[in-house]
Amino acid sequence: MIPSDHFVRFYNEVFKFLDEKGELDEYFARIAKNQEFFCLQQFKTGGLQGVYDYYLKIRHEENCQMDIVFEDNELIMKMTRCPSLSKAIDNDAGVCSKYCQHCLGWTQRIYDLAGLYQIFDLGDWDDPTCCEWIFDDLSKAQARFEEIAETVPAERLYKNF
């Protein structure tokens, strides 16, 4: 058994294998399918509140250092120390430089299905920090994106709208 503590280091080896083949995105879609089991219904029925509640649990279970702010129909999740990337970096096998892409790869698909809008500053692959902004209103998401794009480099900024 690979301990649940060590799953991300196994994941990281899978990413390296798939990256060599240029086939990471198909796997990210499969991860999203698996994640539907854990959170899609909660996101669909609860909207932003459902996302907020889900990440409160995840922050605890996965030992995230993450500030979560939920006000005015905007949910901001600022990861100050991602436990997943931290483990992938603290790893004798070395980190896959596309490690963070998996998070974008599955969350975008889930938010699409839940009718939510995501802006994601993915940060750098060797620094375990990132920030997500989630909205249930497209115009609000677009306006926020314009603001964020002024300060965050375009190559690390993603959105699903």
Partner: peptide, 11 residues
């Protein structure tokens, strides 16, 4: 620290 056993599902 805390365990996230749902990672077994991902594996």
């Amino acid at each position: 620290n805390e365990l996230h056993k749902d990672f077994h599902s991902s594996t």
